[in-house]
Design a protein around this nucleic acid. Structure first.
Lengths: 126, 126
DNA sequence: CAGTTAGATGCATATTTTCGCATCTGTGGA
DNA sequence: TCCACAGATGCGAAAATATGCATCTAACTG
């Protein structure tokens, strides 16, 4: 094991916390905890604009919380598990606990289930 | 055990994450992980203005991360342990891990130790 | 009671962030 | 090759933040 010797972790941490400092992005993370989603699914579940959904996902991605797989026209986002920073595991766990019983979070998750699946699985043939 | 049924946790969580989304405040939290501090000790360790130290502490306090004990002229801040939200435990743990080896954080902790103790313990007789 | 000291806060300013609208990009289908 | 659709992004306006300076408050001291 080489010495990673975190030197500039402060900036990284600020970036991570900033990414979690917005209701929309927390709601996005919340639905992604249920299952992988493409942008339009997030948009539907949260009832927000396309641009807003896309930007929220990008921000979370840039902060290292998400993984992105392109499938044809779709961008399939999921919570990063492999290359997640150690401290990010704790942050995400905190978010999960906090939103477990939150009204908005519950509603978003409900809409995600209820909404008809528009994801790449139905349409895209790799 | 009554049903607390966390309903409005989203706002709380956003507030908590916002509080952690600033380098100064993370540095403050970092030194408080070493030991309880009054405002001027934080100011010295971080080499920042009095107003900035005071405001940073207030913000963290309002977010529920800190405990405050007044001792005469001094305000003694410490990390809240008793009444800390469950999810805040994870958030703080994440911060601790991230800053463990960070250069700035190390320097701040070093200055905290080195700095002559101005705290209430020397001065205040309860 | 007046002076001193630690800390809190109002105000003004500079910076950052959010978000809709419109537009651009890239991929797959006809 | 042209069209349609998912998603990314530039831009500008509005809102939220951070922070220094000066000032105010409260508590101990003499």
């Amino acid at each position: 094991m080489h010495l990673t010797a975190g030197r500039l972790d402060m900036r990284e941490l600020v970036k991570s916390c900033k990414a979690l400092s917005d209701e929309t992005r927390l709601r996005v993370l919340n639905v992604l905890m249920e299952r992988d989603c493409c942008v339009s699914e997030v948009r539907q579940a949260l009832q927000i604009s396309q641009a807003r959904a896309s930007r929220s996902l990008s921000t979370l991605y840039d902060a290292g919380f998400l993984r992105l797989r392109r499938r044809g026209l779709w961008s399939l986002y999921s919570i990063e598990k492999e290359n997640l920073q150690e401290y990010s595991v704790d942050l995400i766990e905190g978010v999960r606990k906090a939103l477990k019983d939150d009204e908005t979070a519950l509603l978003d998750r409900h809409r995600l289930e209820g909404g008809k699946r528009l994801g790449p699985d139905q349409v895209c043939k790799p």
